[in-house]
Amino acid sequence: MILPPGLSHAFRAAAGELGYAAAAWIFARDVHAEAGDAGVGALRDQLGREYPVLDAVCVSWLAGIRAPVRESAACIAALAGCRRLTIVGLESDALDALLPAMSGLDAAILTYAPLPADWDRVLANFDGALSAIDLDAVLARAGSDSALLCFVYGGDDGLFAPPAWLRLDGPDVRAAFRARIAWNVLPTPFAVYPRWLAEVVPTSFTTVVA
């Protein structure tokens, strides 16, 4: 089965503003609606190598999982006592679940990302609950009531984070925040090399939630 040739660039546009996993679930769902499991298989064959998160989501879909299993409660618990949150990586579904449950939280997202996005539009979806910051402003948000949250992906064979996390994973930053939380939004092993992401060790974080 041959899928429309423009899907690769469409995925890039979607992942830039929704997040890799959120966009991948949309693509898997819509391709399945039009072309069934064969279409999802073709999606994996055509785009999987280029977008490993999409590949992993397609594998999950073909294994019968039709939606992300996302528990925000563990992340909310890990953020107890925090008044300021700096977010690395974008996953719109997860943030849609998290931010409304954390009223009063000063949340900001790092706009340093490998895929292009219209950040004004991204932020407009959070009704003022999220602002944007650059790398150089992260340390200004440090403090005893301040946390870092990073979206990660991967199973037991390795944990992968957006490259921006590597810019923050130094001893100067580690000591400056109350907590460094990883939220694994796709706890599935990658079958292909996780391009666009960087391998991190779980000890980079004070807490890993899934």
Binding site: L3, P4, L7, A14, A23, A33, E34, D96, N125, D127
Partner: peptide, 21 residues
């Protein structure tokens, strides 16, 4: 436009503007 591309375009735009009021 193929049915798949059309469906994905609508879903993605819905996602991008999901709570833009």
């Amino acid at each position: 436009g193929s049915a798949i591309a059309t469906r994905i375009a609508i879903s993605t735009m819905d996602g991008m503007y999901r709570r833009v009021h």
